[in-house]
Design a protein around this nucleic acid. Structure first.
Lengths: 98, 98
DNA sequence: ATTTTAGTTCGATAATCATCAAACTAAGCA
DNA sequence: TGCTTAGTTTGATGATTATCGAACTAAAAT
């Protein structure tokens, strides 16, 4: 486990995170979660951003897979919130610019 | 010129910046510029990252178009450097994580 | 046992993107 | 006038992506 390999792994993580944020709808999801300071459901976000529920589900998955969000499930409802640790590590100060 | 329109414009800028950073080679270019703390040419970067000069030119343009880099031209040579103001405004603290 | 609710997965489509070699431009040099 | 150097632009190709509706899963309510 040498330094160069860690560098490559960290970079792949960074690229994945940037890809996840390089979409207008996902950025809007992040902003609304940050500004409302609370968990939100798929339906709630879909209604607010005017996009179909399958598309919202797709974006929720993309954000969760790169570790930018958390999901808490209660019965059939899933609550989404920001995983601030990931932002702190890879994009410190970014959320405050929104 | 209302607040919502400014918000949309700022978001488009953000998405463009994230897209520019969501590529392994462009991220490597940013890192090498940050770590070397100096201007670098297309050829120099191409040699270091082992990619063709047309591809490097393509990435240089992508970074310049979103304002992440500066270009200073001397005769037929172009020197690239980071535009730190853009990082400070949209991604404060990011460069230091590299 | 249906029906409703919340979300996921699939299939299809249209669009964007990264890459390279080849051809090109433009400046400096012999 | 060529020749070299540094970078850009132009196809062409293969890969990935965002989007939607439709079909599906699983839990809750009636």
């Amino acid at each position: 486990m040498n330094i160069e390999l860690n560098q490559v792994a960290a970079d792949q993580r960074r690229v994945a995170i940037f890809k996840a944020l390089a979409d207008q709808n996902r950025l809007r999801i992040i902003r609304v979660l940050y500004q409302e300071q609370r968990e939100m459901t798929c339906s709630e976000v879909g209604a607010q951003l005017q996009i179909s529920k399958s598309t919202v589900s797709y974006h929720f998955k993309a954000l969760r897979l790169v570790g930018l969000t958390n999901t808490r499930q209660v019965a059939q409802t899933k609550y989404l919130s920001l995983q601030t640790a990931t932002f702190d590590r890879y994009l410190p100060g970014f959320l405050a610019t929104l």
